[in-house]
Design a protein around this nucleic acid. Structure first.
Lengths: 188, 188
DNA sequence: CCTGAAGACTTCAACACTAAAGTTCGAGCC
DNA sequence: GGCTCGAACTTTAGTGTTGAAGTCTTCAGG
């Protein structure tokens, strides 16, 4: 069902329990598969809660979740940690316009630099600063600690199984099946 | 790692493959548990993709994802499908101010009505209209079809296992353990 | 060269959300 | 009965995002 991600600053989402929710849906909508609904709703909720948690953690470092996303993307690019605004926008799923402003802010805070490419003056190069990289590292440490704790109750086998199942779903959504029975095409 | 939910209107998120991403992180950050990272990253990605998909579907019905959330919450409330703006805000994780505007729009579109409570004139009652309920039903049908298709490759057993594992994670995040070893308190 | 077309960003107007400051109504107190 | 407090919503100011329009640069012809 999804429960899209909408947190206010850092509030306490207050909703009925998962089981109550599913029971309510079944009352209102007869042909609902509870098993499917359970998986989908749990997925959505889990994700929202996690995002709230990440947001709090990076806030302690003085950066926003949005800024952290940019730092991660730049680090993922590897080595000199450079990427153009357009490329960043594509990877983050933002419009170029939003990227322009985001980079403005981050450059102002010293997390990245923004320069014109000398070889092709239409292009702009955004590069991580040492400070930006340091912030990333701190955030990364907090994030992995949190993630480790989140999965604490699961055995290694269970973690493996969970990972595999999720990846199968992801594949289904990403490669938008060449239609061998199920549609789901044009997902993105 | 999370990959927070940020889609532009309805773009094609373009990112490295999950395996590439994890490999890159390992290069940059030594003590990273690939198994944990796999689970967390898959969760985040899956969710973003799903939200994009939901957004497209409800857009075909002429409503936004945000509006659909309100419809769902009202239906979940049951029977006369009424809730105050404050209560709605709490359940959706929005500020009351945002709720005011959202209700304005939706009332303008005839999806809900907004009236003062006769017994307590400070209170406002938002009620689903028949049109709103009809929209919900259509959206619900599309959503469940999509969800069914998403899980198509998983056997009933696998769906059950996945659901249980997710719920265990959810519990860990929701009840923010009374600290018997792991922290994670104050999550929301 | 000079021109036209395409690409990569930026600027602008409109919209949605947050935080904080109002407004209005109901309740308790003396 | 009039006062004050608190609750529930709305308004305002500021930020971040989208979509469309605009600018600047490069490249392919003519």
């Amino acid at each position: 069902m999804s429960d899209t991600p909408e947190q206010p600053g850092t509030q306490s989402l207050q909703e009925p329990s998962l089981d109550e929710q599913i029971a309510a849906y079944q009352r209102e909508f007869r042909d609902l598969d509870p098993q499917v609904e359970k998986v989908v709703s749990a997925l959505g909720r889990l994700n929202r809660r996690m995002n709230v948690a990440y947001g709090r953690q990076v806030a302690d470092l003085g950066i926003s979740n949005a800024e952290w996303e940019v730092l991660k993307t730049l680090v993922l690019a590897g080595a000199p940690y450079r990427l153009g605004p357009g490329e960043l926008a594509k990877r983050l799923g933002l419009t170029p316009a939003a990227m322009t402003h985001r980079i403005d802010r981050m450059a102002g805070e010293g997390l990245v630099t923004r320069d014109r490419d000398e070889n092709n003056r239409v292009r702009v190069i955004v590069e991580l600063t040492d400070e930006g990289r340091a912030k990333w590292l701190e955030a990364m440490r907090m994030a992995t600690d949190f993630e480790e704790e989140l999965l604490q109750d699961l055995s290694s086998d269970e973690r493996g199984v969970l990972g595999e199942l999720l990846i199968r779903l992801l594949r289904r959504v990403e490669h938008a099946q060449p239609d061998a029975g199920g549609r789901l095409t044009d997902l993105d």
